[in-house]
């Protein structure tokens, strides 16, 4: 009986997970806006050197754009915005810490 209740809870939670996931997270409009934002950021980061002459500011700007793009991919494309916090934080930590480390190497 106890096992049966566990199986029922599990299957319901899986079903509800999928149901809520589909309705609250997956949105073609959200994906499209994110895609446009990523494309715009890519073009900006490629040519930002033409308007920023200060090397440190240029590197910091490019690396900040890396963080912004990484956050979009993690939260929208990978759909981790509503994933267990540990996994979202691990991935966001990656796109935060790695640019900071690279920035320190280049700027200092």
């Amino acid at each position: 009986m106890a096992y049966g209740r566990y199986a029922l809870d599990y299957s319901l939670s899986t079903y509800l997970c999928d149901l809520t996931f589909m309705q609250t997270i997956n949105s073609n409009k959200k994906n499209t806006l994110s895609w446009l934002w990523l494309m715009a950021l890519t073009v900006i980061s490629t040519f930002i050197g033409l308007v920023i002459n200060n090397k440190a500011l240029f590197i910091a700007s490019v690396l900040f754009i890396v963080f912004l793009k990484g956050q979009q991919i993690i939260d929208i494309f990978m759909e981790l915005a509503h994933a267990p916090k540990l996994w979202r934080r691990l991935l966001l930590g990656y796109v935060t810490l790695l640019p900071i480390i690279i920035g320190f190497i280049y700027i200092l």
Partner: peptide, 10 residues
């Protein structure tokens, strides 16, 4: 509901 969303690791 919030707990369900929390559990959703794709």
């Amino acid at each position: 509901n919030e707990q369900i969303l929390e559990k959703c690791l794709p």
